[in-house]
Design a binder for these strands. Structure first.
Length: 827
RNA sequence: GCGGAUGUGGCGGAACUGGCAGACGCGCUGGCCUUAGGAGCCAGUGGUUUUACCGUGGGGGUUCAAAUCCCUCCAUCCGCACCA
């Protein structure tokens, strides 16, 4: 038997799969379609084995579904615009276009070397004009619907990346990419009105029952729906009214002051006549300039200032002071808060600090609260007190009653607010799709007409970030004609957030080369929603929320006929090395290239899949890779076992038992893949099957399996292994003469073969081994025939030597007999 | 603070609706083979004071029977966080 030459085998089959067009799909053929999608990567650096996990899982699913007879579409592309590529380009002094191109070449080679295959005819690259033309088209559609707009707002600014960031790209007050503290800047920026879709984005999460619960919860929390009441407070000695939002309207009678956010637009007007005006404005400016993180860090130490003005709480006619404080956020609710110190911890701390009254209006049903003795706010629900006609009501009832009363009296009304804010999509950076808008002195903001797309990103631009878009220095780009009046106009110089690019790429794969439309609606409707989406949890909020939003917008505009893009989502865990996530900076990156050279792609694939449940993080071990390699050699050597097997004869028991194991394995592997991608246990089952062959040979002798038997087992083993380790499976299959159906030397690909089916009648032996317990403790195992009556089972157990010893001198009080499973005797 | 997850040998991890804990792999031990072994094969491998007992983060409970169900506590990780 020749040795396992993985390198030759893998190169041969990778070449052949491409020649055969194994992964090529005609989208017009929609019979039994299966759209298997991996999140497309940033082409920013070489892939490591952690990245590989994602592609390998996807490849397993694709190949498995293929063997189940489905038409499988698996495309791949490149999320090629954006800061990672640009920053890397700056560092290497290369134009991002070139570094991106080089990285794509490298990554494509790496994917190929893993044996991970795609329909490369559908490759999309988001930084190329034939793609970003349609990203710009998406922008225009949102603009048309009033969903893209420009406004001046306090926005997150990363001083290192020199650009604004979306709320979603700020983690712990720092830039998600470079970890620099994010500042607040008031700038005019482009936004997408995702908040219009907040409710639908929450509601439709219920439809996504094949998504991980964790991701759905994260999205729900991020959107952050709160139900409550908006209450109007007229400003005393003024015709103005301040509205505030509360979720605890039952505490309204305990409101002893009101607080505004420093960014509240009415502040200047309200304090215009105040003698303290300058001092107040100084405070306001100070708070406004603080970064989010600074505000959070000083959370314990709340600061505020009295405005000198009062507002009227109309439910009781009470005049309460109006303050400004750093703990109120302008972005949430209305930027004004009714403060109830007795029942809100923040208000309580603030009131204590500034000597504002604390009045209990919700009593603890368990123990009466004395306002004077409180050390912290009572935030639970309870019984109303000091609340006029609502006294004695329970909080939940009171909320309804008070809200109703307010609506009747015109004091306020029920309202829903969301934490979700509009998506800031403009970036002051070079490497992105230009926003297709021009500014005309006479017409204002004018969208670039569809027939003039794409707005090309100019190439000869110094792209180092300066804080303003580098495109301002490209005069040929900036100067243009107004599409509306033809007069002189200038182009928008900001580019779009890369998350816009990635929010629709899964549609483009269906019609990647169309040049008059972004995609063909009919084809897209046939192929989407995506049957299986696979990627990292890090996109649980950003990318997955944006994609859902854009899909809904396109659905409303009737460009697509579905309102959720991804039917089933799988988020794989990270690969850890030495206790940390693999990263260049930590120096714990395991490169696949040398491993593949040493052991072969199949070994690396097998180990990656065997390492643990794919949805969980897993620690990489180079030793474990050797174990996978050892197993594949044992599989390979089965070809030698087949050669040596006698043409007839053999041991009947060995044969039966092996075939039974084979059918059990087929059942187990099929269930593990279909259910929830339990590849690790599927592989261990195949290992058991292979071990059984060798165990039989060593126990019963070399000739115990006749050729036919080994042939059947090996053929099925190859089929079961094919999705995981496609090259060796294909080679074994080929050496055994291709498909049995063809009966020829044509060497039909194993992936054109049907996934093996198990025979129900072959799963179980005539005899079963039944564990026997006494008082729940295992005392014996007895082999007995199936289908026995309870009485008969009891007889057999009672005659067992071991059990006899245990029962001697004791009285069996109760027999629990589960036929063919277990016997427990209580003594 | 809120939300979510996880906790099983020396290690990665198995265990379906409660029913033989530790499958499979790594590592380790011993043996065979070999000029040699970072190759291959075979056997063993949770712990202990080994007729038996103890063992799934700790404590308690339900049950004939608990890694699995209930209560409680602890630890670690992840996400969100002054959200009114």
């Amino acid at each position: 038997m020749e040795p396992y030459k993985f390198s030759d085998i893998e190169k041969k089959w990778q070449k052949r799969w491409r020649e055969q067009g194994l992964f090529k799909v005609d989208v017009k053929n929609i019979s039994d379609k299966y759209y298997c999608l991996m999140m497309f990567p940033y082409p920013s650096a070489a892939l490591h084995v952690g990245h590989g996990r994602n592609y390998i899982i996807g490849d397993v699913v694709a190949r498995y579904k293929m063997m189940r007879g489905l038409t499988v579409l698996t495309p791949m592309g490149w999320d090629a615009f954006g800061l990672p590529a640009e920053n890397a380009a700056i560092k290497n002094g290369l134009h991002p276009k070139e570094s991106t191109r080089d990285n794509i070449t490298m990554m494509k080679r790496q994917m190929g070397s893993w044996g991970v295959e795609y329909d490369w005819d559908r490759e999309v690259t988001s930084c190329l004009p034939d793609y970003y033309k349609w990203t710009q088209w998406i922008f225009l559609k949102l603009f048309e619907k009033g969903l893209a707009y420009r406004k001046k707002a306090f926005v997150n600014w990363c001083p290192s990346c020199n650009t604004v960031l979306a709320n979603e790209q700020v983690t712990d007050g720092s830039c998600e990419r470079c970890d620099t503290r994010v500042e607040q800047k008031e700038l005019e920026q482009w936004f997408f009105r995702i908040t219009d879709y907040a409710q639908r984005l929450i509601d439709d999460l219920d439809k996504l029952d094949e998504w991980p619960e964790k991701v759905r919860i994260m999205q729900r929390n991020w959107i952050g729906r709160s139900q409550g009441v908006d209450i109007d407070f007229p400003v005393a000695d003024s015709d103005r009214t301040l509205t505030c939002f509360t979720t605890r309207v039952d505490t309204i009678y305990g409101c002893t002051y009101m607080v505004l956010a420093a960014e509240h637009p009415m502040i200047e007007e309200l304090i215009a006549d105040s003698p303290e005006k300058d001092r107040i404005m100084e405070f306001v400016r100070e708070v406004r300039s603080e970064s989010r993180i600074e505000r959070v860090q000083t959370a314990g130490e709340k600061r505020g200032l009295f405005t000198g003005r009062y507002v009227i709480n109309r439910i009781n006619g009470r005049k309460i002071p109006l303050w400004i404080a750093d703990y109120v956020l302008m972005e949430y609710g209305t930027g004004a808060v009714m403060a109830v110190p007795a029942h809100d911890q923040r208000d309580f701390e603030f009131a204590k600090k500034y000597g504002l009254p604390v009045e209990v209006v919700i009593d603890d049903p368990a123990e009466h609260i004395d306002a004077g003795k409180m050390t912290e706010a009572y935030e639970d629900e309870g019984i109303l007190t000091g609340s006029a006609q609502f006294d004695g009501m329970k909080s939940p009832d009171a909320m309804g009653a008070i809200a109703g009363h307010m609506e009747k009296e015109g004091i306020g009304g029920r309202a829903v607010h969301y934490k979700l804010r509009d998506w800031l999509i403009s970036r002051q950076r070079y490497w992105g799709a230009p926003i297709p808008v021009v500014y005309c002195d006479s017409c204002g903001i004018v969208p670039v007409p569809e027939d003039r797309l794409p707005v090309f990103l100019p190439e000869g631009v110094e792209f180092r970030p300066t804080g303003e878009s580098p495109l301002k220095d490209a005069p040929d780009f900036v100067k243009t004609d107004c599409p509306s009046c033809g007069g002189p106009a200038r182009r928008e110089i900001d580019t779009m957030d890369t998350f816009v690019d990635s929010s629709w790429y899964f549609l483009r794969y269906i019609s990647p080369r169309l040049d008059d439309r972004p995609f063909d609606t009919e084809d897209v409707n046939n192929w989407l929603p995506v049957d299986q989406y696979i990627g990292g949890v890090e996109h649980a909020i950003l990318h997955l929320l944006y994609s859902r939003f854009i899909t809904k917008v396109l659905y409303d505009a009737r460009y697509v006929g579905f309102d959720e893009p991804f039917k089933r989502l799988f988020t794989q865990g990270m690969i850890i090395k030495n206790g940390a996530k693999m990263s260049k900076s930590k120096g714990n990156v395991v490169s696949p290239d040398s491993l593949i050279e040493k052991y072969g792609a199949d070994t690396v694939r097998l180990y990656t899949l065997f390492i643990g449940p794919p949805e969980k993080d897993a620690e990489w071990s180079d030793r474990g890779v050797e174990g996978a390699y050892r197993f594949l050699k044992r599989v390979w050597n089965l070809l030698g076992v087949l050669d040596a097997a006698p043409g007839s004869g053999g041991d009947e028991d060995a044969r039966k038992s092996l075939l039974r194991k084979m059918h059990q394995t087929i059942k187990k592997v099929t269930g593990d893949i279909d259910g929830s991608f339990h590849f690790n246990t599927a592989i261990s089952a195949i290992m058991e099957l292979v071990n059984r062959v060798y165990a039989g040979l060593s126990e019963k002798g070399e000739g115990c399996y006749e050729k036919k038997c080994i042939e059947e087992v090996l053929r099925n083993t190859a089929l079961l292994l094919a999705p995981f380790v496609p090259h060796i499976a294909e080679e074994i299959h080929g050496r055994m003469g291709g498909t049995p159906e063809s009966g020829s030397e044509t060497k039909t690909s194993i992936f054109k073969c049907t996934w093996p089916a198990f025979r129900e009648d072959m799963l179980e032996a005539d005899m079963v081994t039944v564990p026997v317990q006494i008082n729940g403790k295992l005392r014996s195992t007895i082999e007995m025939p199936r289908n026995l009556e309870q009485k008969k089972i009891q007889e057999i157990v009672e005659s067992d030597e071991k059990i006899k010893v245990w029962l001697a001198g004791k009285e069996a009080r109760k027999w629990i007999i589960l036929p063919e499973k277990l016997v427990n005797i209580v003594v």
